[in-house]
Amino acid sequence: MDHDTFIGEVQNRAELASRGEALSATRATFQTLAERIDEGQATNIAAQLPDELARIIEEEADTTESFGFQEFVGRVAERDENLGSEDDDRSAAALHARAVIDVLDEAVTEGQIEDLRDQLPGEYDDLFELAEADGAPGQP
């Protein structure tokens, strides 16, 4: 999947008004995800993405932190240029992150998504909610 298609899909699924908003949501989600997963996994995911998107992940992949899903959403909200720290913005950040992961699910191999899920505790299952609803591979 190329960069423009990826961002367009995020815009559509998150129902964002512009491609700029979709890029901001994607950047915020990828930066936060790269902080949460190990460097090898981040590198593997980045290798399957267009260069512009891969760089976002690779820039943050040098450290791995352990934090819960609510902290993940909070970091996405802080980084997304169109959101803030209010509760409504945190809900929007969760929706945006789900849309980004849903598109990521289509952009990389099934094995990469499984490996990603394996690195995250069960509380992160909500992050994969859209992909599961769409009948992603391995889902009933």
Score class of each variant (00 low, 15 high):
residue 6 F to K: 10
residue 87 D to F: 08
residue 137 P to T: 06
residue 104 L to Y: 11
residue 114 E to T: 05
residue 42 A to H: 11
residue 112 Q to M: 02
residue 21 E to D: 15
residue 42 A to K: 12
residue 82 N to E: 12
residue 19 R to S: 13
residue 101 I to P: 01
residue 103 V to A: 03
residue 17 A to G: 03
residue 85 S to L: 10
residue 15 E to G: 09
residue 73 V to F: 04
residue 127 L to R: 04
residue 131 A to P: 05
residue 38 D to M: 12
residue 6 F to E: 07
residue 120 L to Q: 04
residue 111 G to H: 02
residue 59 E to L: 06
residue 78 E to G: 08
residue 89 D to M: 06
residue 136 A to G: 06
residue 98 R to A: 12
residue 115 D to Q: 13
residue 135 G to D: 05
residue 30 F to A: 14
residue 115 D to K: 12
residue 33 L to Y: 13
residue 28 A to I: 01
residue 10 V to G: 01
residue 127 L to Q: 04
residue 99 A to W: 05
residue 135 G to L: 00
residue 25 A to C: 13
residue 36 R to K: 14
residue 63 T to R: 09
residue 78 E to Q: 14
residue 60 E to R: 10
residue 127 L to I: 03
residue 74 G to E: 07
residue 36 R to A: 14
residue 24 S to R: 08
residue 80 D to L: 11
residue 35 E to P: 08
residue 140 P to T: 05
residue 15 E to W: 05
residue 55 R to S: 06
residue 39 E to P: 14
residue 124 Y to F: 14
residue 83 L to Y: 09
residue 12 N to Y: 06
residue 16 L to H: 11
residue 53 L to W: 06
residue 129 E to T: 04
residue 65 E to G: 02
residue 27 R to Q: 15
residue 23 L to T: 10
residue 52 E to Y: 01
residue 73 V to K: 07
residue 9 E to V: 03
residue 101 I to A: 01
residue 58 E to S: 06
residue 122 G to A: 07
residue 78 E to K: 15
residue 23 L to S: 13
residue 44 N to T: 11
residue 69 F to G: 02
residue 84 G to L: 09
residue 10 V to C: 00
residue 25 A to T: 12
residue 64 T to E: 05
residue 122 G to T: 04
residue 100 V to I: 09
residue 111 G to D: 00
residue 21 E to Y: 12
residue 19 R to F: 07
residue 31 Q to E: 06
residue 6 F to V: 11
residue 65 E to S: 07
residue 28 A to S: 10
residue 45 I to R: 10
residue 95 L to R: 14
residue 81 E to F: 10
residue 9 E to Q: 13
residue 64 T to S: 03
residue 117 R to G: 07
residue 108 V to F: 08
residue 12 N to F: 13
residue 3 H to L: 06
residue 58 E to P: 04
residue 51 D to C: 01
residue 30 F to V: 01
residue 29 T to D: 05
residue 78 E to W: 08
residue 48 Q to Y: 00
residue 119 Q to G: 00
residue 129 E to Q: 03
residue 83 L to M: 08
residue 109 T to Q: 11
residue 104 L to T: 09
residue 73 V to T: 09
residue 25 A to V: 13
residue 49 L to R: 12
residue 111 G to Q: 00
residue 53 L to D: 00
residue 139 Q to N: 07
residue 72 F to W: 08
residue 76 V to I: 08
residue 36 R to W: 12
residue 64 T to G: 00
residue 80 D to W: 10
residue 31 Q to K: 15
residue 91 S to V: 05
residue 52 E to L: 08
residue 25 A to L: 14
residue 37 I to V: 15
residue 140 P to D: 02
residue 89 D to Y: 04
residue 110 E to N: 04
residue 116 L to T: 08
residue 81 E to H: 11
residue 47 A to S: 15
residue 89 D to C: 02
residue 97 A to V: 07
residue 10 V to W: 02
residue 57 I to T: 06
residue 70 Q to P: 01
residue 12 N to K: 14
residue 99 A to G: 06
residue 48 Q to S: 04
residue 36 R to S: 13
residue 6 F to M: 10
residue 36 R to L: 15
residue 105 D to T: 00
residue 50 P to R: 01
residue 136 A to L: 01
residue 58 E to F: 02
residue 7 I to T: 01
